[in-house]
């Protein structure tokens, strides 16, 4: 443990990812779920950048950059959906929404 190795940031990435996943599974507020998804994106980015650092390659960073762009797009649409949900169904509770049923 004297040097920084891939194990460190992989552990960090796993921790962040699983915390985000738990948030998605447990919380009922769509806004919080949304934030947890962003957290999971970040966890993945940490992995990519860590591997890039370890392997002396910039491909991982490039991937991370694209993920950030996609996350931005996702944020715009996701928040738009949340607004529409709140306006149309008057709720942001994930358990109150079962439009997907039938």
């Amino acid at each position: 443990m004297s040097e920084l190795t891939a194990t460190h940031f992989l552990t960090l990435s796993a921790a962040l990812f699983i915390i985000g996943m738990l948030g998605v599974l447990i919380r009922r507020n769509v806004l919080v779920i949304f934030m947890c998804i962003e957290l999971m994106f970040n966890a993945v980015n940490v992995s990519f950048i860590g591997f890039a650092w370890e392997q002396h390659s910039l491909v991982g960073q490039t991937f991370a950059l694209f993920i950030i762009a996609v996350a931005a797009a996702e944020a715009v649409v996701g928040l738009g959906i949340i607004m529409a949900l709140s306006r149309r169904l008057d709720t942001v509770d994930i358990d109150q929404v079962h439009e997907l049923r039938e």
Binding site: L25, R28, D95, V97, H98, E99, L100, R101, E102
Partner: peptide, 17 residues
């Protein structure tokens, strides 16, 4: 099987996990 189709996103997320 259609009872599995609850329409609740939380259940689907659980299945994904």
């Amino acid at each position: 099987w259609r009872r599995v189709q609850t329409g609740l996103v939380a259940n689907y997320a659980l299945a994904i996990a």
